[in-house]
Design a protein around this nucleic acid. Structure first.
Lengths: 217, 217
DNA sequence: ACCTGAACACCGTTCAAGT
DNA sequence: ACCTGAACACCGTTCAAGT
């Protein structure tokens, strides 16, 4: 005789995200999720295979929050906005994002993002191989940057993660000189600067190639 | 009455590294380390505070393998070689590197690397603030890249991490087109291209500034 | 069809007892 | 000064028994 389900798969995924956002990555436990939903831990296995599969589902959900703007305003701003979107999503789920990244390589959502990126870049005149290289560089830069932010940066306004006493300014004169200058805006500025450097390089690559081999066919 | 120690702190750190290199990150367990050294798990607590402290020690050891070349050949090749060294170390310990990264922000070794980088860049004519921005961009790019390699890249020569069947080429035409072109060398090439793009941008920044404000004092 | 108590093999860590 | 058996509070997961 069938029985009405007390929880659904979607509720489990949502509870997992809520839990990590609220209590940190260490709180992501089958029992804690159950507690969150008024159900015993073992009940979750009626709806998901195991914890790994749950993390995949969580990761797909987070990935789907990344937005690629509609193809209006040229490849550079589409690309720039896309990676800003990655960073925005990471900021929304700082504790969760590192867990998501572990799952990304085998997710379908990632393939969708790559396909969309290649589409934009090829339309702009890049060949597939170069476009993929550009994707790796831009996304790995973004991921590294965002991960550093999520983890807590070494040198930050104030004093950063290194304990105040542990950095004798006579052994670290340059660091002692930058530290007081740092403001919170600098994290945004450095990310944008990184995107700029890479995009400028790609722009140069493109104008070189369209100069030597002017738009055939 | 004193008793000769069966293990030392250094042996514990070495065993931990060996273990992860051989059996993967999941094998890093107090009991497995004890087993490796012929000692019960609890004995380790006579030499280290807890597992977190052990991971810090492991991370410091790995960090110290990163080499910054002697100041011979100009800032660009010093910088390039330094980040190549990071990647080399990561390749030597693929399973361990993600764990190390979690610890990096509060390690003294990281501060030493930053200080050395700032030194090189300031000698080349950068101000401290810009030099720190450059460090963030270069190191976060490198870390993101190397992490993607350690985790397994989505699109790789062969088929990559996505299961063969799961990528219908009619929904992913661009990906279907690049995949067969990819060779193993492309991972090196894309990393070097990323360094090139960033370094080219920094070079441009430097020549702009020395042009407008020619080497005073 | 879904829930759960009991059980299993594993964690990290503490502490008292040993040498 | 160092090692360890027993114990504790936690993991993820399975399975048989319940509705």
């Amino acid at each position: 005789m069938p029985r009405p389900a007390k929880v659904t798969r979607d509720q489990i995924v949502a509870a997992a995200i809520r839990l990590v956002d609220r209590d940190g990555a260490a709180a992501l436990t089958m029992s804690r999720i159950g507690e969150e939903l008024g159900v015993a831990a073992m009940s979750l296995y009626n709806h998901i295979d195991n914890k790994e599969a749950l993390l995949d589902a969580v990761a797909e959900t987070i990935l789907s929050d990344i937005t690629v703007p509609s193809t209006a305003s040229g490849w550079e701003s589409i690309v720039r906005e896309s990676f800003r979107s990655v960073r925005r999503v990471a900021h929304r789920h700082p504790a969760l994002f590192p867990l998501v990244l572990d799952r990304v390589p085998h997710l379908l959502g990632e393939a969708r993002l790559i396909e969309a990126f290649l589409e934009v870049m090829c339309a702009a005149g890049f060949d597939e191989r170069t476009a993929l290289g550009a994707f790796r560089i831009l996304s790995d830069f973004t991921i590294g940057y965002v991960l550093a932010e999520a983890r807590g940066i070494t040198l930050e306004p104030g004093q950063g993660r290194l304990q105040a006493g542990s950095l004798p300014s006579e052994s670290f004169p340059r660091i002692a000189q930058v530290l007081p200058q740092l403001g919170a805006e600098d994290r945004d500025a450095d990310f944008e600067l990184g995107l700029d450097l890479i995009l400028t390089g790609l722009r140069a690559w493109l104008s070189d190639r369209t100069a030597t081999r002017p738009t055939v066919d």
